Computed example of a mutant assay.
Amino acid sequence: MFLNSGVLLAEYKTSCAVALSLHKKHRTVIFSSHFTLGRSVLPTESVNIGNMMRNSCNLQLSLFFLILGVSDVFSGTEYVETGKSYSFRPYIKNRVESILWRFNNDKVVEYEDGLLKWFQFEDRGVLATETGVLTLKGLKKSDSGQYEVEILGDGILRVSRHDLRVIDAVSQPKVACIKDNTGEVTSLECSVDFNIPAEYQWTGPGDMKHTGRTLNITNSTDLTAVYSCTAENPVSKNSTEFLLKECQTGDVFNGTDCVETGKSYSFRPNIKTRIEAILWKFNNEKVVEFEDGLLKWFQFEDRGVLATQTGVLTLNGLKKSDSGLFEVEILVDGKLYYSRHDLRVIGK
């Protein structure tokens, strides 16, 4: 039984032997203590009165009360950049007797009786047995989740929980021009690499400030106007400056198109002059490349067709997994043209 020395037991009535057993799966600690229960208990630590256990092996002993000193602390959510290290630091000042770390309810590492046993993360983890601090290196997105430690020290079981979120740093933001049917710029759109969470902040002429990914342009005739987009998430921050006149030869965002599963779709960049080179990407991974008269596919070859004279990419038999951002870079007369297309494949 985990009781501090300050516990006062008054007016003793009954004497019994109590075996407190926390099952090994849930952090087993077994020890027995002979004591007398009284009418009142004054603990210096918070106590938890749990369920009783019955001994059925002909010992005819009943365990009436489980009085266990437990401290439970939630340390909040921490964001860490992919590839970095992080140390979970439970607040422990007492002498550590045993430690059990879990990740999403599965054991990570256990320390007891001077022995250390790893169940996962052994190649990337370090456990400080004196403090309970667990350090993980080379973090991956799959390492995101709930980490929990149970530390037994001086008869007190302390529980500490940590919520970890591993995310990518924001890439250099890209600015795209959105045009109407007449070719006039109506807005600018800022973006980072696909699937990276970010918030966006714009600044521009006349101390203009705007929050959000898309910035409406009220005066597209001032081609000397300079705008700045800043992308930020909990682990990083990055900015890009954009001159409005770049919309004449720059990056064009063609909006979001929804296509039914199983159908075909053609991405049509607006190119009317002779093409020297083409590179299509899907979620930042190469799809197909055309250069020096040679065509090379990286994915979608069995379902894709590229028109090298126009840059049009057609995909057949679309699947939901084809949803995402398609980008093309086209070299024309020594100048690069960019076009981005957001595709959403819907249906069964």
Rank of each mutant, 00 (worst) to 15 (best):
R274P: 00
R89H: 08
V288K: 07
S21R: 14
L61A: 08
G206E: 07
S264K: 13
V345T: 10
A128Y: 11
F65T: 15
S321V: 08
D342Y: 09
I271T: 12
D106I: 06
K174W: 11
D292F: 08
S56A: 05
L188P: 04
I156W: 06
F282G: 06
T44S: 09
S98C: 05
K209V: 12
L22G: 12
D257F: 06
S236R: 10
I67F: 11
I196H: 08
I99W: 13
M1N: 04
L22P: 01
G138W: 06
E289T: 07
P43V: 05
V159F: 04
G76P: 05
F194L: 01
P197N: 15
E329C: 01
G317H: 13
G132V: 04
N48F: 06
R303K: 11
K263E: 15
R344W: 03
N316P: 00
H34L: 08
E122G: 01
A19D: 09
N254D: 05
T221F: 05
S339M: 00
G69N: 13
K245R: 13
G125C: 13
L243K: 08
N216T: 13
K348N: 05
D251I: 03
V185M: 02
I99G: 05
K140F: 04
T77L: 03
I271N: 07
N270D: 15
Q146D: 12
W118K: 07
S264T: 13
T249W: 04
N238H: 12
L223M: 10
G155L: 06
D322E: 03
H23Q: 08
S220H: 08
E78W: 09
K296D: 09
K272Y: 11
G212A: 12
L3W: 03
V259W: 06
G132R: 05
I271K: 04
S71Q: 07
N55H: 09
M52T: 08
I151V: 15
A225M: 02
S236P: 10
